[in-house]
Simulated assay, not measured.
Amino acid sequence: MPRRSFSAPTAIAADPLDLARRLLDEGEPSLADLASHTGLSASHLQRRFRARFGLSPAEYLARKKLGTLKAALREGRDVTTALYDAGYGSPSRLYEQGAAKLGMTPATYRAGGRGVAIRWTLVDTVLGRTLVAATERGICAIELGEDDTALERRLRDEFPHAQLERVEAGRDDFLAPRLQAVAERLAGREADVPVDLLGTGFQQRVWDALMKVPEGETVSYAGLARQLGAPRAARAVASACAHNRIAVVVPCHRVIRGDGSLGGYRWGLPRKQQLLARERG
């Protein structure tokens, strides 16, 4: 399947980086194509695009295609149709580019994680009872609550067909170091926590942007939508925050309403207040 064509917007954007992103959203231009349409050199465009959006143009395009694929699979479309609609030229290209980032094959993702190994445990943290779950690629869920049964139910609802294995906290060579890193982050200290973010392309863009909001600062739903170049998508941003499964590490607690009120929080407004007060202090 040939590279998808694209055409430059009729109204040239004042900002060459915004124009480059619009071209990527509309087709599959090469870096040379983008440089030609924006008037920047390829190397300069590459550097500035990564500085603005956190991804190279090629990575941005790959993320967009993967998001389209995931959304189609979630809707129940067959893998062959989904892969071509997403812009993968062949099944081999899909498995080279897509399966590795899904953390599972597309068919398995569509089947609710069937066969994927997820290890999880329950631990006490400074924020209360916490469920931590991980695939081989990283943390896929951090759920906060008080009731162990409810926490486990959330995990099983999220990954209904995965191979879920409960392990003893601190006694599993795979999960133990990840648990320590999670505990550090929940306590407000720096720690590198590898994550396995599974969601639509837009959700991943929101979650990526959230992880760039500095500690002690907040952003409004509308403000985050504007940062993403989708100023009318404040509700979609709020929905992405509500679907975030990784508490604190993906800091959706730093998103508030435009009037300064807290808005919602998957793990309860008292915890959101607690987290914001701690970070501001």
Rank of each mutant, 00 (worst) to 15 (best):
P9W: 11
L19Y: 06
A20S: 12
L23V: 09
D25Y: 11
G27M: 14
P29F: 15
L31R: 12
A32D: 12
S36V: 10
S36T: 15
L40D: 08
A42N: 11
A42L: 14
F49L: 04
F49T: 00
R50I: 02
A51F: 13
P57E: 07
E59V: 11
L66P: 00
K70E: 09
D85Q: 11
A86K: 02
G87Q: 10
G87S: 07
G87T: 07
E96C: 05
G103V: 08
G103W: 05
G115S: 08
I118Y: 01
G128F: 13
T130Y: 05
C140W: 06
E143P: 00
D148Y: 08
D157W: 09
F159K: 01
A162V: 03
R166G: 01
A181L: 10
R185V: 15
L186E: 06
G188Y: 11
D192F: 15
D192N: 10
V193D: 10
G201H: 08
Q203Y: 08
R205L: 15
W207K: 04
D208H: 14
A209K: 04
L210D: 01
M211Y: 03
V213Y: 00
P214C: 06
E217A: 06
Y221T: 01
L228T: 01
G229M: 14
P231H: 12
A234H: 05
V237E: 05
H243K: 13
I246D: 03
V248P: 02
P251G: 11
R254I: 13
D259I: 10
G260T: 11
Y265M: 07
L269C: 04
K272L: 13
